[in-house]
């Protein structure tokens, strides 16, 4: 899929929602290592502990530790303190803390590649409006300078309606969502769409519409099976887990993958056989229609996924 927007001639502004640090480190390191292989300058805003993990992982990927000198690291927590006064971004400080560094990196040669944890830090501190404001600043910079930006967010806990709105806003502010397990971001990320839904009785219908719209946008044909699968999984989240939920849809290699993640920490619903017993024919039908399906236990949450041919 071409994720470049017409008003973003060069920038890729990708977001990856991760479940574990290991998943995040692996995906960010691959992104940075691929840039180093091509001689692209790299700029990383990360916490000290993540920086260490990236250095180890990138050295392992490239078989050398010359990376340390090729990547400009900025401590994310310090940068945040400099950026904000009374909870608002100061434009001049965005210029000195972020923009000037991106400009330097771009000046070192061609397209730069940035990775930032600033926004995610704000997000996890509950400073959602500030996070959205910072993403918008990055977006404006992207219209001006040729660089790729990668953001990683820990998959949020969605208990409030405001959280759902903020989450969906974050998705919209990026030019693309990196699919879980996508290991070749540079080839152009696989089509992936994520949306959060409330625990309401009309949400399954909205989830069906979301899947149909995403399929239409990507030019992927899905038959009634995909609608039925997402509907049954969404209904289970609403009726059994009584939980807001996210739907992640990806399409690659003739396979459409639908994953519904709810906030149920109920471990009785943690195995496939229990889920089948609990929700009766709904999940049985998913199992019958899907070419593959399964359940992932997550921290305080679970994800039921299913694949169909497109």
């Amino acid at each position: 899929m071409d994720v470049e927007r017409s008003d973003h001639p060069v920038t890729h502004h990708l977001v990856h929602f991760y479940e574990s640090d290991a998943e995040m480190v692996s995906s960010v390191s691959r992104y940075l290592a691929a840039g180093l292989d091509r001689g692209e300058p790299a700029l990383v805003f990360a916490t000290a502990s993540h920086r260490e993990m990236f250095e180890v992982a990138i050295a392992a990927l490239r078989g050398s530790d010359d990376a340390a000198s090729s990547i400009a690291y900025v401590d994310a927590e310090e940068a945040l303190e400099q950026l904000f006064v009374d909870g608002r971004i100061v434009p001049e400080r965005f210029e000195s803390v972020v923009a000037s560094r991106v400009r330097d990196a771009v000046g070192r040669g061609g397209v730069a590649r940035a990775y930032g944890e600033l926004v995610e830090l704000l997000w996890t501190q509950g400073r959602v409006a500030a996070a959205v404001e910072l993403e918008e600043q990055w977006d404006r910079l992207g219209a001006e300078l040729p660089f790729k930006l990668f953001c990683a967010y820990s998959m949020p806990s969605l208990q409030q309606a405001e959280d759902l709105d903020a989450f969906n806003t974050v998705c919209h502010l990026h030019t693309g969502v990196v699919a879980p397990g996508d290991d070749d971001i540079d080839a152009g990320p696989a089509p992936c769409a994520v949306r959060a839904f409330p625990a309401s009785r009309t949400a399954p219908r909205a989830a069906r519409r979301f899947v149909a719209d995403a399929a239409a946008t990507w030019g992927v044909s899905v038959d009634g099976d995909a609608a039925l699968i997402v509907s049954e999984l969404a209904t289970n989240a609403v009726v059994h887990a009584r939980s807001p939920f996210t739907v992640t849809m990806t399409a690659e290699g003739g396979v459409v993958r639908l994953a519904v993640r709810d906030e149920s920490a109920d471990l009785r619903a943690g195995s496939e056989s229990d889920l089948l017993a609990e929700s009766g024919r709904g999940l049985g039908l998913v199992a019958a229609l899907a070419t593959r399906w399964g359940v992932r236990r997550l921290d305080g949450a679970k994800e039921v996924w299913a694949e169909v041919a497109s």
Binding site: P204, R208, G224, A227, L228, S231, E232, T235, G280, R281, G282, L285
Partner: peptide
């Protein structure tokens, strides 16, 4: 569209 609950 009809789901499992509708068919039931």
């Amino acid at each position: 569209f009809i789901d499992c609950a509708g068919l039931r």
